[in-house]
């Protein structure tokens, strides 16, 4: 139990570092959206949001330290949500009369 408390104390610092990163990345994301990068705007925005999500998921939601059962569950969800996105986009672009 006390060991758990020790690791928890160490993690508090990482929570605030993550906080800093999340704030900075949000600002960067807004700034980037005012640049005219054409199609790259969306890509840049998604990458930044992706990094933010990874930080939040990994550290605030403890995924980096979590058990493998949880990794499998969340992996499954991400896999199928990507399948949904990709197949929808694919069937949009590959359709008769387009």
């Amino acid at each position: 139990m006390s060991e758990e408390i020790q690791t928890e104390k160490k993690r508090i610092k990482s929570y605030f570092i993550v906080f800093g990163f999340l704030v900075i990345l949000a600002l960067v994301n807004v700034a980037v959206s005012y640049l005219h990068l054409g199609g790259m705007n969306i890509a840049a925005g998604l990458v930044i949001a992706g990094v933010q999500a990874l930080l939040a998921l990994g550290i605030l939601m403890h995924i980096f330290w979590e058990k493998k059962t949880i990794h499998h569950l969340i992996g499954l969800a991400i896999l199928f949500v990507l399948a949904l996105f990709l197949l929808l986009v694919a069937s949009y672009f590959d359709s008769i009369g387009k």
């Binding site: 399948a83 197949l87 694919a90 069937s91 590959d94 359709s95 008769i96 009369g97 387009k98």
Partner: peptide
């Protein structure tokens, strides 16, 4: 079973690549 759903939609004008999948 999660990635076969559009075989219900062959008549909606999907292209060949997607229907093949």
């Amino acid at each position: 079973s999660m990635i076969v759903w559009a075989h219900h939609m062959y008549m909606t004008g999907m292209g060949q690549a997607v229907t093949s999948f």
